[in-house]
Design a protein around this nucleic acid. Structure first.
Lengths: 251, 251
DNA sequence: ACCTGAACACCGTTCAAGT
DNA sequence: ACCTGAACACCGTTCAAGT
């Protein structure tokens, strides 16, 4: 039931061997994998608005109706694309196990807190690289890739010695924060004009805060310089650490 | 600059006094307020998909092009609708000050932690009542209503005696969690079939977790009963408390 | 079994034309 | 100044028809 959307991890976009030379119509037959791969390419290049069945069909050199033979509808397509990105990101985080930060089974002396940070950052970076993913999480939280992330984080809390009665609250807060923050960061990225850089946009907003009425907005005015200077990734991690610190107070 | 989207708080949807009787064309002339009010009604009744300029024009008994004279485009309309809902929710939280939980100036003996909980719950409940708002926050975080929420939370951290060097991290984690969690909750609500109740849906998902492979998903299996039994609102608040506990460890 | 592409029922937005 | 509503350039999805 939860594996309905499982798709392969490796795409082979265009394996037209010049020796084989079967250019009948397209280099390859259509497949769910090729469709999802093309969808991701379109989404990365142009955002969610750029993904249309017509654009997808053009890129795959097929008719728009053909896609429906492999994918139920646009929601399923976005879900499959999201699952693919999350799967790859988790695989990357796990392979970081070799350097000791996080191990697949959880055995060994790796620090569970550090493992949680690695997983959280992997999600953050994946969504930063594919901002369209940010809006998809909450739309399909039952996906298999998501379940693996959920389990990975929960497992580390177990290792950490969090009392079982506090597992669910601690897990829920962490997972909610990680995907919520990553999603908001992606939304900021989507909001921004493609050419401009992040720090200039931040300076703009911080400037607005600094000019607010001191009587009404004393806090935002005081904090404006830090808004201008902060790094989104560090900020994200500071939140994770704050929640971990809160979890540490539970016993 | 930040007050571009400021709109009135009170709508007077249909003030057709039978004595006045000016049914020239519509009960009222078109206005930005009436448009936003009608948009909110459509959004609440049918979700984001139901809000079209044609549906809006029909409800307002006007042409679809007329709306563009008062509102720049659909994004601006959604931003104004969101601003209205958040403004009302914050006003409700502030009026809770009378019962002592939160005071507008922050003077008096009100507990800042409790004030933060009240504000957070007000946001959660507002988004729960208007799920379409959940997807809008990250799209327009510079709105005036949002700034008031930001300031309200930051101000309580100040009151709480959090060292100034930790203000920005603490504030950022709280705000990110509050809007991220509320947004995800709304997405779950949107996902659900309109007829079914939440606890049945939760039991379904928890059942799926309980049937996962014990070798791969030990944590999710153990935690499945709590998933089934939890209350979204309590869960949300537990996360806020965990972050507050983490903030308490900083000095 | 798989693919084609025209057709259907929509969208947001524009704009000449009205009052 | 404000409103009308047809028109434009799109959408996702379906489906008879092809191979």
């Amino acid at each position: 039931m939860f594996h309905r959307y499982l798709i392969g991890t490796a795409f082979h976009e265009c394996q037209d061997d010049p020796m084989t030379k079967r250019t009948d119509r397209r280099a390859d037959a259509l497949s769910r994998e090729r469709i999802v791969g093309a969808a991701i390419a379109i989404l990365d290049a142009g955002g969610e608005g750029a993904l249309t069945f017509r654009a997808l069909a053009a890129r795959l050199a097929t008719g728009s109706g053909a896609i429906y033979w492999h994918v139920a509808d646009k929601d399923a397509l976005l879900a499959a694309a999201t699952d693919h990105v999350v799967t790859r990101a988790m695989a990357g985080a796990i392979s970081g196990a070799i350097s000791g930060a996080i191990s697949e089974t959880g055995a060994g002396g790796a620090d569970p807190r550090e493992a949680i940070r690695v997983i959280a950052l992997a999600m953050f970076d994946a969504i930063d690289a594919h901002p369209w993913v940010g809006a998809q999480f909450s739309r399909a939280p039952w996906q298999p890739a998501m379940l693996r992330v959920f389990e990975a984080i929960g497992g580390r809390l177990w290792q950490l010695g969090v009392p079982e009665g506090a597992w669910f609250n601690a897990w829920s807060a962490l997972v909610t924060y990680i995907f919520g923050a990553a999603g908001q960061n992606a939304a900021n990225a989507r909001l921004q004009a493609p050419g401009t850089d992040r720090s200039a946009a931040l300076a703009d907003i911080a400037g607005g805060w600094a000019r607010l009425d001191p009587a009404d907005y004393p806090f935002l005015r005081r904090v404006a310089p830090q808004l201008a200077a902060h790094d989104d990734r560090d900020q994200f991690l500071a939140g994770v650490d704050l929640i971990l610190a809160g979890i540490g107070t539970v016993r």
